[in-house]
Design a protein around this nucleic acid. Structure first.
Length: 473
DNA sequence: ATAGGGTTAG
């Protein structure tokens, strides 16, 4: 019964009720009950309840089976307590158990610690376990170490390990992020050789890969060849067409779907946002609500808020914000970033600031959008101060942080500070400057009469010189 | 036990 509830979304809480009535009435339960409850807690993301289950497991001596230990590690990892997950792993004799080890490797990559994941893999794994390899490859792919993911995929083949559906799915997603059709085609060929092209995960992965490599024609061919409707493939195609500016085709594909999920809604929303068509965004949101299929998830709301920010439409933005409060939608970091960004773009920097300051925790994206908001409103000093605060909170800046930071320096004409940050970006954070960083710096030099420096820097630019740079200086 | 959508800038 509990297991049935646990596997049905939105009925998970019923499972908790059943379990507590079991406890109240003294109905006996075993390790299977507890494992199911842990999986359920991992879905509900309630750490405190998970901890109660953990102590219940210890009390009833149900904590030695490798599957229960694995569920425990998984629960702690998903509920955001990596330290507890590691403690359970180290404290259990499950150290050499394959299932627990794989779960621990997955916990490491969710934490973003691929060094630890790879150390665990090479130290404890039996190299003939496909799941172990898949876990590591998926970790690299999801943490942006795309070359590493491909390397391991090749290595697997070289030592005679068999690839399966999971391997291909992760590797295809790495090819998509790399936008490397060269690698993607090779993987595609392997998929065909292994007769896996009808697996829906894989076929949508292939379609996505060709779309990201801007070969929509081929993507459409692959999609048609599977013969069945695949929402994920169509979502990728919608994104592909809309990034070419063809919203008519994107809309046609969307309308042709019999079954729509939130992924495909998001794909269409983001297309209209990309083309800055805020009327279409609102109209679609109306459609979405009149269909009453589901509550909009965070990604849909992020896009709708993005639609509000296009025309500095404060009223719709506030309306969406109120709607979110009314619907009891929980705000996470991403939603807070979008809200702050929306308010900042609509000229309400104080609102943005309030959302930022009231957030229980702040991540990199949130700092980035707030720094950008300050820079946009001419509060360059606040932007710079916030960047320093970000470093003090030990949040690592990324390429985008430096774009917004350098553009703040540019607006304020702060050459020395700009120089300092530009150097620090490369030296301290190993971020290679991209065209946007260069154009900020060149513009900064140009406006402050440091033309020699501007010319000097232009020579350094490795890629083709963007027309924007030449125009500005 | 391992799998597919996006956000922050200019």
């Amino acid at each position: 019964m509990i297991s049935a509830y646990a596997n049905t979304s939105s009925l998970e809480l019923e499972g908790v009720k059943v379990f507590s009535s079991m406890q109240d009435t003294g109905t006996p339960f075993d390790e299977f009950t507890l494992t199911t409850m842990l999986n359920l807690t991992a879905k509900l993301l309630v750490l405190s309840y998970g901890k109660q289950l953990h102590s219940c497991m210890v009390k009833t001596a149900n904590d030695s089976n490798s599957f229960t230990v694995s569920s425990l590690i998984d629960m702690y990892s998903k509920c955001g307590s990596f330290d507890d997950a590691l403690r359970v792993f180290k404290g259990s004799s499950g150290l050499l158990d394959l299932v627990c080890k794989n779960t621990m490797v997955a916990a490491c990559y969710w934490e973003g610690d691929m060094d630890m994941a790879s150390e665990l893999f090479w130290r404890f794994s039996e190299l003939n376990d496909t799941v172990s390899w898949n876990t590591l490859i998926s970790g690299y792919a999801q943490n942006g170490c795309l070359g590493k993911a491909l390397e391991l995929f090749v290595l697997m083949g070289e030592i005679g390990m068999r690839w399966n559906e999971h391997t291909f799915t992760s590797v295809l997603s790495a090819c998509s992020s790399l936008k490397s059709q060269k690698h993607g085609r090779e993987v595609h060929a392997w998929v065909l050789k292994n007769g896996l092209c009808l697996n829906p995960y894989i076929s949508s992965g292939i379609v996505d890969m060709y779309c990201k490599c801007d070969n929509i024609e081929y993507a459409e061919l692959v999609n048609a060849s599977t013969g069945t409707e695949n929402v994920f493939s169509v979502s990728s195609l919608i994104v592909g067409h809309s990034s070419r500016g063809d919203m008519v085709e994107a809309r046609r594909l969307f309308d042709s779907l019999k079954e729509k999920n939130s992924v495909v809604w998001t794909a269409l929303f983001s297309g209209y946002v990309r083309l800055r068509n805020c009327d279409a965004v609102f109209e679609l949101f109306l459609d979405f609500n009149t269909n009453k299929i589901q509550v909009p998830d965070a990604l849909i709301l992020i896009n709708v808020l993005g639609g509000c920010a296009i025309r500095a439409a404060l009223h719709p933005g506030k309306q969406i914000h109120r709607y979110m409060v009314r619907m009891g939608i929980k705000l996470d970091e991403r939603l807070r970033s979008s809200l702050a960004d929306m308010y900042a773009k609509c000229g309400e920097i104080e609102y943005a600031e309030r959302i930022f300051k009231r957030a229980p925790c702040r991540d990199r994206v949130m700092y980035n959008s707030m720094i950008a908001g300050y820079a946009r409103h001419g509060y360059e000093n606040k932007a710079i101060r916030l960047f320093e605060e970000m470093l003090e909170s030990s949040i690592t800046p990324d390429a985008i942080t430096f774009i917004v930071l350098l553009s703040a320096c540019r607006h304020a004409g702060l050459v020395e500070l700009g120089d300092k940050y530009f150097a620090s970006m490369k030296q301290d954070y190993g971020i290679l400057p991209e065209i946007d960083h260069y154009s900020c710096m060149v513009d900064l030099y140009g406006r402050t009469n440091c033309l020699d420096k501007a010319v000097e820097l232009m020579k350094e630019i490795p890629v083709k010189r963007d027309a924007v740079i030449w125009k500005r200086s």
